[in-house]
């Protein structure tokens, strides 16, 4: 596939992910350009199975690298692992739900997201908006696949043990995310 086409498909995803990670508009624009300019002369794209995962990974790495480079002369700056800020802005597409129901849903979604940690929010964003598998999410967020699997397993197990208890079921849904 031509790189222009790939760019056309994924630039919004990359931009939106970068903004979510807390980077500025300018940083995101620079990073997108850097990522694609580097890919022009490489064969990397041809070998990619999962383009979305690949490009989001590139985007994150590039944002962090640009951030490190721009702070190279400073004695003190945030380390990568401190980039644990992930904000989610909930927006609703009008016209499908009645106004009050839409408002109520928005509030509930927001409060559900507020209960999560930043990393859990990042995972939810990647799962819901980018429709990525948890294995990919784990890889993107530097989690081992094993820990992701284990979490899922644990969650299923507790649901089986307490099939009718709402509070437990409610908690188990979070089990995976909490372990992130």
């Amino acid at each position: 596939m031509k790189i222009e086409v790939t760019y056309g498909q994924y630039h919004d995803a990359m931009y939106s992910y970068g903004i979510g990670l807390g980077f500025s508009h300018d940083d995101c624009v620079d990073a997108i350009q850097d990522v694609f300019c580097r890919l022009i002369n490489s064969k990397a794209l041809e070998k990619v199975d999962n383009m979305r995962f690949f490009l989001l990974k590139c985007m994150k790495n590039r944002l962090l690298k640009n951030y490190r480079d721009s702070n190279a002369n400073k004695t003190c700056y945030l380390k990568d692992e401190n980039f644990e800020n992930f904000e989610i802005k909930v927006s609703m597409i009008d016209g499908i739900l009645a106004k009050e129901r839409q408002e109520l849903l928005k509030k509930k979604v927001e409060s559900a997201l507020n209960m999560l940690t930043a990393r859990q929010r990042e995972a939810v964003y990647l799962r819901y908006m980018q429709e990525m598998e948890y294995v990919e999410i784990g890889a993107l967020m530097n989690l081992t696949p094993d820990s992701a699997k284990l979490s899922v397993h644990r969650a299923i197990k507790s649901i089986r043990e307490n099939p009718s208890l709402k509070p437990i079921a409610y908690v188990t849904v979070f089990a995976l995310l909490r372990s992130l």
Partner: peptide, 22 residues
């Protein structure tokens, strides 16, 4: 179809500038 999270779009002028570069 209703709920969007961080539904940001790369602004058109930036989209254009980058694509131009590419």
């Amino acid at each position: 179809t209703t709920v969007r999270l961080n539904d940001y779009r790369l602004p058109q002028e930036d989209e254009y500038l980058i694509s131009h570069h590419i």
